[in-house]
Design a protein around this nucleic acid. Structure first.
Lengths: 224, 224
DNA sequence: GGGTGAGTCGGTAAAATTACCGACTGCCCT
DNA sequence: AGGGCAGTCGGTAATTTTACCGACTCACCC
């Protein structure tokens, strides 16, 4: 009678521990209204492949090799305004909690998480909720508590592109205008090879693999 | 095995509507680990008698004759640091929400509330949680979010992209996200060749010769 | 029935981009 | 004196994109 979810909720997992990753994936598979569309062991892979997957929900571990899930969410949430992010971590750390929410996370669960809990969270967040472990919820609420009247801890706005050198910024500007490498090298008076090198370094820093991904990342953001 | 709550959770209710007041009280009575120790129709009565009752949990209506439940909570929460306050209101109002949390409330439910929901909330809050309707939770979380800096205002003189067919628009969206042709064809369920053809036609119509020029052309412009 | 547009598909080849390797020069800092 | 960083340059090879060719189906309209 009830034509269940016409399309299941697509979920991506970012988690470095292979065992946990597998467990989570299996938990999701026990429900037919949820579909795990990808698992990633690192922030790099996640940043690279999740944008093209466009999952409805991303389960994100905080502690990742090299980077943190928080940075990853900050980046992805800007590129994927229609995706929802649920942090899944074992560290009960207030700083990480608020950093995660500021970065764009909608939920925050503490590991270990049970199957029913995980599924409930995925469904909840996709329906507009913010799944959180109860103690976490209290902490979030307490942040508004007597004393701090204004809700916005600090409006981040659109974090500018950082970490790029002057020259790299310059190259990126030309890049985002669709110039050929040859044209850029002519304009800047340097060799074709130099332009390539700069661009390679830019891509590494921005965690993208092509010009268009870099440009997409820039959408609306100021160049520092 | 589990020696149920040695002492039930004491709950007080502040609610002006007699009917609702009675309903809430009855809901609480259906559980034996919860005990309704008092009901009050006004802020005055609540402020006068609740301090002596020292209930563990206070269910507080926001709209009260004369005063508001928010003021009432602000007062009571200072005098009763061991009591917990859960707002229970039918007005889904952000201002009231944040004012309530600032005043010291730990939970926020929207009426009408079902029995199981109410009992879960009472137990949750007494165990250190912060019961909230899911949409409310999201709103609280969003308050920390990447600054409510909404999408960049749409400059007037930005003519939308026109002349592209539905399918072409779709392809262009993926294109501007940096997906590979292969990824686009997978996502849309068409062949690699088809994607190429669409893209060629898009470039012709937009008078560009590369993906990045097309993306640059899109900067801030709506897809029609 | 013919024409048109949207959408689909294939092959080939050139052009552009990306990845990865290494190296050299200045400059600043300890 | 050494280390680190930004900037410069080169080669090679794989990958991706772009250009241009032709062709088929289907729906719609005159």
């Amino acid at each position: 009678m009830t034509p269940p979810p016409p399309s299941p909720i697509s979920v991506a997992i970012v988690e470095d521990d292979p065992r946990v990753r597998r467990d989570l994936c299996e938990m999701l598979h026990t429900a037919d209204d949820v579909s795990c569309v990808g698992t990633f062991p690192s922030a790099e892979e996640a940043l690279e492949k999740i944008p093209n997957l466009r999952p409805k929900v991303v389960l994100m571990d905080i502690h990742l090799p090299g980077s943190t899930g928080i940075e990853c969410v900050r980046d992805l949430s800007q590129r994927l305004p229609d995706s929802l992010f649920v942090m899944l971590t074992s560290s009960d750390d207030s700083e990480a909690l608020f950093a995660s929410l500021s970065a764009g996370a909608s939920g925050y669960l503490l590991k270990p998480v049970r199957t029913t809990e995980l599924l409930a969270a995925v469904r909840d967040v996709s329906l507009g909720g913010s799944p959180m472990t109860s103690h976490i919820a209290r902490r979030v609420v307490r942040a508004f508590g007597p004393a701090n009247s204004p809700p916005p801890p600090q409006p981040a706005g659109a974090p500018p592109v950082e970490g790029l050198s002057e020259r790299e910024m310059e190259i990126l500007t030309h890049l985002s205008q669709g110039s050929l490498y040859k044209e850029i090298s002519d304009q800047l008076g340097v060799s074709y090879a130099t332009v390539r090198t700069h661009i390679e370094r830019i891509y590494r820093k921005l965690h993208v693999r092509s010009r268009s991904q870099a440009v997409a990342l820039l959408q609306g953001r100021p160049l520092r």
